[in-house]
């Protein structure tokens, strides 16, 4: 009876994993679907297989709009993860290592941006920019992303700092190292994998964001998720599958690197 139940659970798990991954696999598969010519234009199906072709990727690489969006998203992601890494790390360090009053308040302040719906954060930031006449552009998107990405680095680094042996720092200090030397030579190398993992997560969350970017972008500036979204609104096509596949490859690679870093240390 118990055996049968366990087998049943196992089979259920397999089915759930198939349901979780099949749509992604099908999306990637149909990015290679051959199109047909209709009225002088190439169109393609995302549900009926015609044959293998790289034409949609070929089209992508020759569309400046996509390169532009990819460039914007990458730039925003890199700057966001850098800001998040610096601010998240030093505040996590301060909170774990120093006796600070109002710790809980600060902790709540770091986590609330993850709890409040993203769309309300996005529209509140838009009102802020409008009220103070701040020109919308790449910078305004980066600020919007950093408000919630700081929390990712903060959480990961904080966990790592509270885990490790503090006597290492004390040893360095008692051997005559300055607090700054202790931080750069002892603490930083130990928490570096945490900072890196947190920054990678921050990058993917920024790279993937549609809502905040849509609310805080300036005229003519478009990110990759915004481009995909506007293309979906005008109808599904293997071309969208191809762009989506590229974003999946980028964030999948980063997830793999992050997993590799944290499993090594």
């Amino acid at each position: 009876m118990k055996r049968i139940f366990d087998k049943f659970l196992k089979a259920y798990l397999v089915i759930i994993f198939i349901i979780l991954y099949a749509p992604i696999a099908i999306l990637v598969l149909f990015s290679f679907n051959e199109g047909i010519t209709m009225g002088g234009r190439r169109i393609g199906s995302t549900v009926i297989w015609k044959g293998f072709s790289l034409e949609w990727y070929d089209k992508l690489f020759r569309t400046p709009e996509i390169w532009n969006a990819l460039g914007n998203s990458t730039f925003i992601g890199i700057v966001t993860s850098f800001i998040s890494a610096v601010l998240g790390t030093i505040s996590a360090y301060a909170l774990v290592r120093y006796d600070i009053k109002g710790k809980n308040l600060f902790y709540i302040m770091m986590l609330v941006p993850i709890i409040i719906p993203e769309i309300t954060e996005a529209l509140s930031l838009l009102l802020f920019y409008v009220l103070f006449n701040i020109k919308l552009g790449l910078n305004t998107i980066i600020i919007g992303h950093a408000t919630f990405c700081i929390a990712y680095v903060f959480t990961v680094v904080r966990a790592r700092l509270s885990d490790y042996d503090r006597s290492l720092e004390e040893a360095a200090l008692s051997l005559g190292a300055t607090p700054f030397q202790t931080f750069t030579k002892v603490t930083l190398p130990i928490i570096a994998p945490g900072i890196l993992a947190g920054s990678l997560l921050a990058f993917t969350q920024s790279f993937d964001d549609l809502i905040k970017a849509s609310f805080t972008t300036g005229s003519g500036i478009i990110t990759l998720p915004m481009l995909i979204f506007s293309k979906i609104k005008s109808g599904v096509s293997p071309e969208i599958n191809a762009i989506a596949t590229i974003t999946l490859i980028i964030s999948g690679t980063l997830a793999f690197i992050s997993y590799w870093i944290s499993s090594r240390s």
């Binding site: 549609l210 999946l248 964030s251």
Partner: peptide
């Protein structure tokens, strides 16, 4: 970790 937009789009087809 994978794109939310891409995952949601994949369900349409």
């Amino acid at each position: 970790w994978l794109s939310f937009v891409a995952r949601t789009y994949s369900i349409i087809s």
